[in-house]
């Protein structure tokens, strides 16, 4: 899941300064789960913007709507009949959602209310951690299901650096050393030999941005469309 966090209120305040009619658009998928931009968070955020505006003596109307997803045109379509009424749209989606919303309504000013953090998992109530950096060439089979690209700050593929400290990382003593975890896991499942193999340099061409991917099943239809 994409994990995001809300920007400080004052940052969003600065973005919407001078606008009177504002629509806050929530996203009901990843950011709803990580409590950053779903229906509930939109309600809270809109209330904050209203109260702040009132306290600062600003003339401002804040409306709110949350759609299923902002990364699919079908759902963005539902906003078509509303957007003309607003001076600015504040999106509480991840960066991808904000961009798609801005692309769909390209005559509108679309503003981000969140900072997108990473692809991660829920470690506990209200705590998320990064687990994947979308390298496009998964090596988890070699590393006992622990990602050296993500969990190791230096993205090392061949073992720990000298900064490993009692199983913790030199970069942040709170975080585990990826290669200590990998070693322990591979030892446990009897696959240390995979760690003895020298991994070749990563193919970073696969990570060239912007990434684009067409599902195999859709390749032919796409080609037909282009003809």
């Amino acid at each position: 899941m994409i994990v995001a966090e809300r920007k400080p209120l004052e940052q969003v305040e600065a973005m919407i300064d001078g606008f009177e009619r504002i629509l806050v658009v929530g996203c009901g998928t990843c950011v709803a789960v990580c409590m950053a931009g779903g229906e509930k968070e939109v309600e809270l955020f809109a209330a904050e913007l209203r109260m702040k505006g009132k306290l600062d003596g600003k003339q401002r109307t804040i409306d709110e709507i949350t759609i299923t997803r902002q990364c699919d045109m079908e759902y963005l379509e539902q906003l078509a009949k509303y957007v003309d009424d607003y001076d600015a749209i504040v999106s509480t989606a991840c960066g991808a959602g904000v961009q798609f919303l801005a692309e769909r309504y390209d005559e509108k000013l679309v503003l981000p209310a969140l900072n997108t953090r990473f692809i991660g998992v829920a470690e506990g109530a209200g705590v998320w951690s990064q687990r994947c950096m979308a390298c496009s060439d998964c090596v988890l089979d070699q590393t006992g299901g622990i990602c050296p690209m993500t969990i190791c700050a230096k993205n090392l593929l061949n073992g720990p650096c000298g900064g490993t400290d009692h199983g913790k990382c030199e970069v942040d003593g709170e975080k585990d050393c990826a290669w200590t975890l990998i070693y322990r896991k591979l030892e446990k499942i009897g696959r240390l030999d995979t760690m003895r193999k020298i991994q070749p340099p990563k193919d970073y061409s696969l990570m060239t941005t912007p990434g684009k991917y067409t599902h195999e099943a859709f390749k032919e239809t796409q080609a037909e469309d282009e003809e």
Binding site: N158, G159, P160, G162, T164, D165, H166, G167, W179, T180, I182, Y183, E187, L192, M195, R196, I198
Partner: peptide, 23 residues
């Protein structure tokens, strides 16, 4: 190359040490 003989745990460090020699 370099190695940290006092690394804790030492096993993964030694494994990498061997890879460095192989490399």
């Amino acid at each position: 190359a370099v190695v940290t003989p006092e690394a804790d745990p030492i096993e993964p460090q030694m494994l990498k040490f061997e890879k460095k020699i192989a490399a």
